[in-house]
Design a protein around this nucleic acid. Structure first.
Lengths: 224, 224
DNA sequence: GCCACTATGTGATCGCCGTCATGGCGGCCA
DNA sequence: TGGCCGCCATGACGGCGATCACATAGTGGC
């Protein structure tokens, strides 16, 4: 869902400034909850810096990761659009600078800027495509395959090129990675172990270094 | 995704007539493909009668059901919004009367009717919530639980009350039901067998009759 | 009514992954 | 610097469901 818009995010700098007049700034600490599933959705969050995790919990306590929103993205727009309660929980993954806009003010803003409405339509369309793709991903391949696929995806979106230049470092905990691929932490750890045994990556604390992206890409698309 | 709008569907009768001027009528036979994943999405379909199945295939040939669109719903709107190729395949489940509108004409129609644009936003929001809920559903409970849950859901949306009045008949093949809950046909058949053994339903060819909806609802929400 | 075909029911086997448990490593803070 | 705690690794075991195989029963065409 996040990061699928063209560079620059959902709004241009100019539009951000226009929206800014309708809202107020707010900071969220790491791991601070921005809103929780079931609450009334009376406001919309524009992410300025930091990433935001959108997830839900199953009855048995497992976490399912629905999206990671990045700077330039909008969070909590669904409730503003349809007036229904939050269907997921949003938590700051890093210190987050945000713009908080009340739902009515957001709707007013949209109506006053028709071009924004069109872009919002596109954003929602991208979210639907992404959600549908998730459904397929979770049914395609075993855990190792899905972990490899997610790592390649993460590398393209937020990997940091360090070292020799072909290495890509991803900063992520195995718990989050597990929620992402829809598996337990143990299974994810074992999958990483297999990929490590192939020599395609190395693992560390909150850190995964991909050393053979092409091989991982191949493994990710294997029909097996 | 389908059937989540207020009664009457996405558009009012009057609006349908307005849109009709921009498109042309077309009939699709049972099992006829309306469009296929990967194609260019140059047109939008308004469903007048009959149901349409939206699905994708995994690499291993398994089918994943993403949505069933009903009369009043719109099909293929994503490509019209973002210009990208079809991300899924649409097939008529029954004889379908449809209104085919070119993508540019559809966009024009939206721009000319701001209230429609708002309703389209709400429709897309509902689709996102639905897709997210699917992700959770597929991770909650065993196959039997998920089959029960889907049956209850289907009963509420398109069940026909026949017989004594407490019985609900659902017309669906086990293959489709399996794709819906994300399992094989065999596993689905066995799950139906267990529910049948409890006396909560009877099964037949393309036909499932729910005889104890409350019990099924209970089984569907068990955390086990 | 006969036949081909499709849909459903069920058994046997097996591999993957969830669960529980244990141990080690590394960072952070007092 | 020493101890605590969060994160990662790995083993053992059991169960669920995928897969393959086959039997049976409706169903529509002729």
């Amino acid at each position: 869902m996040a990061g699928r818009e063209p560079p620059g995010g959902f709004l241009t700098g100019e539009e951000w400034r226009a929206l800014e007049a309708a809202g107020r700034r707010r900071r969220y600490r790491v791991r601070q909850r921005i809103f929780r599933e079931g609450e009334d959705g009376d406001h919309v969050i524009g992410v300025l810096t930091g990433r935001v995790k959108i997830s839900v919990q199953t009855g048995s306590g497992r976490e399912i990761l629905l999206a990671v929103k990045e700077p330039g993205d909008i969070v909590g727009e669904l409730s503003a659009i349809d007036g229904r309660p939050r269907s997921a929980t949003a938590v700051a993954l890093e210190p987050v600078d945000a713009l908080v806009v009340s739902a009515p003010a957001f709707v007013e803003f949209i109506e006053a800027h028709p071009r924004i409405a069109v872009r919002l339509l596109r954003t929602l369309a991208a979210q639907i495509r992404d959600a549908d793709r998730r459904s397929v991903d979770r049914d395609t391949g075993d855990i190792t395959c899905r972990v490899a696929r997610r790592l390649v995806d993460l590398a393209e979106r937020l990997g940091e090129h360090r070292g020799s230049g072909v290495e890509v470092t991803i900063v992520v905990g195995q718990d989050d990675l597990a929620a992402w691929v829809g598996a337990t932490r143990e299974a994810t750890s074992r999958a990483l172990g297999r990929l490590r045994a192939e020599g395609w990556l190395t693992t560390g604390r909150q850190r995964i270094v991909l050393t053979d992206l092409p091989a991982l890409r191949r493994r990710a698309t294997e029909t097996a």
